[in-house]
């Protein structure tokens, strides 16, 4: 019996890590290239764009020229709207995707019923759903959330489905043999068995929600980071476009990282408890 209950966690110092410096170098050279392209090349298309210094100055300015910086309330209203929509879509994706994935993996009839339809709809990109969403839903909010939800939902369903499919057949046989009812099988075999794959699904779904969000917001919303980007373009407020994009990337990254962290914690706890893994 390996003593698997005492994992050794070594906290790494990011500054002592070669990977960290390489990442910084990558980021730095990107900014430099950007600056050079805008300032020092004779290419018109590039000269139109704001350079990184202008963007940062605008972003951090207490009195921004175009009305959006970290000191303005509007900035946070946009962030909050986007976060709210991404989280709502993410939650819906879990609530609907997990049960559907479970039943598709478990019951042959549900699989046959849903799978081909599902496979046809899955490759349709979020942007292509926007017109239908606007026609389908009475207000802006549900339409945007619907578009944000779709890819996350597909990811959630597929991951759950794959997780259920990966449970060894003997686990079902044993449970049937011992007199397990469908409820027992669901709670004691399927859900714990598919759990690792469901966690992976959560991470993908969170990323997918942010990824799709901007498409919906650009076209149908009055607030949100996607709206901010599109609106700034229309109003020729170019630095604000970049602020919106960078904020979208940042918030999306942070929420995905949060889901990943919680997921990894839970999985590590589970593995440690079950004595598997490391």
């Amino acid at each position: 019996m390996a003593d698997a209950t005492t994992p050794t966690i070594t906290r790494r110092n990011p500054f002592a890590n070669e990977g960290f410096w390489l990442a910084m170098l990558g980021l730095g050279s990107f900014l430099l290239l950007w600056y050079a392209a805008v300032k020092w090349t004779p290419i018109q298309a590039f000269n139109r764009l704001p350079d990184p210094l202008t963007v940062v100055r605008e972003w951090l300015s207490p009195t921004p020229s175009y009305g959006i910086s970290i000191f303005t309330a509007d900035y946070y209203v946009h962030i909050l709207y986007s976060t709210y929509r991404a989280l709502a879509a993410f939650t819906l994706a879990i609530l609907l995707g997990v049960p559907l994935g479970i039943f598709m993996g478990w019951k042959r009839s549900v699989h046959q019923y849903a799978y081909s339809l599902f496979s046809l709809l899955r490759p349709v990109p979020p942007l292509a759903w926007v017109p239908i969403a606007i026609l389908l839903f009475p207000g802006v909010e549900p339409a945007v959330i619907f578009v944000t939800f779709l890819v996350a939902f597909f990811a959630m369903t597929m991951n759950t489905y794959v997780g259920v499919k990966a449970i060894p057949e003997d686990y079902f046989r044993a449970s049937a043999c011992l007199g397990g009812t469908n409820t027992d099988i669901l709670w004691d075999v399927i859900i714990p068995g598919a759990m690792p794959s469901i966690f992976t699904g959560l991470q993908i779904a969170m990323g997918a929600a942010w990824f799709s969000l901007a498409a919906g917001e650009m076209i149908a919303a009055q607030y949100g980071l996607g709206f901010l980007i599109w609106e700034s373009y229309n109003l020729i407020q170019y630095p604000t476009i970049i602020i919106g994009m960078a904020t979208l990337g940042l918030v999306g990254y942070l929420s995905s990282a949060a889901v990943r962290m919680v997921g990894n914690r839970l999985m590590a706890w589970r593995e440690q408890r079950l004595g598997t893994g490391g």
Partner: peptide
Amino acid sequence: AGSDRLLVFQETALWPWM
């Protein structure tokens, strides 16, 4: 299947999460 006839499996069928 019924619990009057119980099968012990070739590969283990103990549930790892219990």
